[in-house]
Nucleic acid binder design. Structure first.
Length: 489
RNA sequence: GCCCGCAUCGUCUAGCGGUCAGGACACCACCCUUUCAAGGUGGUAACCGGGGUUCGACUCCCCGUGCGGGUACCA
């Protein structure tokens, strides 16, 4: 086995997204993934790695869900657990031997030590330190054990972990987002690298894998800033060159708290179900902490990939605004071809056939913000609405409504082409003198027909709606409406 | 408690010593209009506070405040 850095394409950027399969991909995760994907650029390689080293929180089904979400967003990867690649395997639980090997190297050079302390002792230690107002850190008791004492413990099969011996001095790096960072190593705990179950912690696995996979830039959330010195210590002890680090700020909810489940649906899969387009979501997420520096605001993923750069990444946290997402989604719905919209509508309208989908797409494209608005908007096409008399007439005199419906039915004999003009002049003929009243009267008349046809006061335009259900059905609905009104007079 | 970071309209942001502090979402008004949208025009709305540095600070420095992150055999 070799621990040489995998760098199959020297000089090119290699970025990774390395989620932990513990649930569902949330906006925050996906933001990191999107930034990594975009900052990989068109020349580099983007890879996915599964960090499944926490066996207690591990959810096996999560992996395929993650990959599905990433693919839906269009974040295509060049190497990953499903497609393999030169640095396979891309799942950490399958790379245990590497971590064990590195851990023993660290032990050999004295950069790490075995620790046999029980969890109870560690808890007591922490509690005491906290009570004394001290930072909570491991007291290195096991580090002071002699070789023979350690040997004895090992021989007895005592439960052990391997801890990093945090070196003296300072750790510093030039963060691509936050700028120069410096920490006093004395303030940093001796991190556990190998847990008692033999699995590595993130801190070891991540360093080993990023090195072996030739990762050039690590993009992660700011919650990792305080542990970066630990990672730097491991790189240094092994004589490995660390990658560039870019710590991006958290995504916040409307209450300015870290975006989480309590904000409703933070899971990306839920946004898909609500009828948001991946284009819109990616567009919005990209602007959380980044902007092109111009007044452009609509970008495709591939445009983002060519335009995005580290130096325009912002260090301040951003609030995820669903109203803005609604707007952007409307923009994107209007931007894609109607045929494309039709096929995306399919999962929201399983009862519609392809020709219907095409008609529906054309008539809703300009008026929706989310795909899930469509079923309500076109419900009339799949079920007879049977509106009640008062819903039909509204504020209109029933006799006038009646007459108007009759007129509409007659006009339909000639198709829907001249329907609106005919209706308008018919309505105008019975309108009162004053201009305001006339306007209202015409509107009310039109509404009678709309309700008769669709059962709704808000619907897509009438001619298209009628074309969707067919003239015969429309005429039947008009006849029914007239009968309903007649019965109630 | 200790360590670290952040701070421009309600929100996303532009700004990188001299601007009427720009754009977008949302909101309001008007126009267009068969409803709802879309579109058009206009409007309300911001540099957290205090000290410096400077001829001049939203921009640079310090302090305060607020918000956030970390402080695990979780990532």
């Amino acid at each position: 086995m070799s621990l040489v850095a995998g760098d199959p394409l020297p000089g090119l950027r290699r970025l990774r997204f390395a989620p932990s399969p513990t649930g569902q991909l949330h906006i925050g995760n996906v933001r990191t993934a999107l930034l990594s994907y975009c900052l990989t650029g068109t020349e580099g390689r983007f890879l996915i790695r599964i960090e499944d080293t926490d066996r207690e929180r591990y959810i096996p089904e999560a992996v395929s869900g993650y990959l599905g979400t990433l693919a839906w967003l269009g974040l295509h990867w060049d190497e990953g657990p499903d497609i393999g690649g030169p640095c396979a395997p891309y799942t950490e639980s399958e790379r245990l031997e590497y971590y064990a090997e590195v851990a023993s190297q660290l032990l050999d050079v004295g950069a790490a030590y075995r620790c046999f302390c029980s969890k109870e002792r560690l808890e007591e230690l922490r509690a005491a330190q906290k009570a004394a107002g001290q930072p909570t850190r491991y007291d290195r008791r096991c580090w002071r054990m002699t070789a023979s004492e350690v040997e004895k413990e090992v021989d007895q099969g005592a439960e052990q972990v391997i801890r990093l011996l945090m070196p003296e001095g300072k750790s510093s790096w030039k963060d691509l987002v936050l700028g120069p960072q410096e920490f006093q190593n004395a303030e940093i705990d001796d991190q556990v690298l190998i847990k008692s179950d033999g699995f590595p912690t993130y801190h070891l696995a991540q360093v080993v894998d990023d090195h072996m996979m030739g990762i050039t830039h690590v993009i992660r959330g700011v919650e990792w800033v305080p542990s970066t010195p630990k990672h730097l210590a491991v790189y240094s002890a092994l004589g490995w060159a660390p990658p560039h680090f870019a710590h991006v700020p958290l995504v916040l909810g409307a209450d300015h708290k870290r975006l989480a489940k309590r904000h409703g649906s933070g899971a990306v899969a839920d946004y898909r179900a609500m009828g948001y387009l991946p284009e819109a979501l990616a567009n919005l997420i990209a602007f959380l902490g980044w902007s092109p520096g111009t007044e452009e605001e609509i970008f495709t993923l591939s445009e983002l990939r060519t335009r995005m750069s580290f130096d325009r990444l912002q260090a301040s946290p951003a609030v995820f605004d669903q109203q803005r997402l609604d707007h952007l989604n409307g923009v994107w719905i209007r931007r894609i071809p109607a045929a494309d919209l039709a096929s995306r509508l399919r999962e929201f309208l399983p009862e519609a056939d392809d020709p219907q989908l095409a008609q529906i797409a054309a008539m809703v494209q300009e008026r929706i913000h989310r795909l899930d608005e469509v079923p309500d908007l076109v419900r009339f096409a799949f079920a007879n609405p049977h509106p009640k008399s008062e819903e039909l007439t509204g504020k209109l005199d029933p006799h006038i409504a009646q007459e108007f419906l009759e007129r509409a039915s007659a006009l339909l004999d000639k198709g829907t082409g001249y329907l609106m003009e005919g209706l308008k002049s018919a309505a105008a003929a019975t309108a009162p003198e004053d201009p305001q009243g006339a306007k209202r009267h015409v509107r009310e008349c039109m509404q009678v027909v709309r309700v008769a046809i669709t059962g709704q006061r808000v619907s897509p335009p009438l001619p298209e709606s009628i074309d969707l259900i067919g003239i015969d059905v429309a005429k039947a609905r008009l006849a029914e409406a007239m009968a309903v009104i007649a019965a109630s007079v």
